[in-house]
């Protein structure tokens, strides 16, 4: 736990990993690009906690905002609709 790599307003892309294990990054959002809405804080990594490990060092957790129209090609709603997802830093890369 030191510093968050991304800041509010940064454009980020969710990694497209397809791996077994306990993952808190939903599949539908992987590969998509959005904007950091806020840094939620630093939390033990749930992917490790799930196997009874301590999950340290803590990871930065972000709320990332995506445009619905970017996430769902057939999205049926105004362009202003968005979806916010909590994503751990190791699932994000600079967009």
């Amino acid at each position: 736990m030191s510093q968050a790599r991304f800041g509010r307003g940064d454009r980020v892309r969710v990694r497209r990993a397809d791996v077994p294990g306990h993952l808190r990054t939903p599949r539908y959002i992987r590969g998509h690009e959005g904007e950091v809405e806020r840094i939620c804080g630093f939390f033990a990594n749930p992917e490790e906690l799930a196997f009874n490990r301590h999950g340290l060092p803590r990871r930065a957790l972000y709320r990332v905002r995506f445009r619905q129209a970017d996430v769902w090609p057939d999205y049926d709603g105004p362009a202003t609709d968005t979806i916010d997802v909590e994503i751990y830093e190791h699932w994000l890369e600079q967009a």
Partner: peptide
């Protein structure tokens, strides 16, 4: 509409 997926 802003959806919030409570993932973590």
């Amino acid at each position: 509409v802003r959806v919030h997926d409570s993932t973590a």
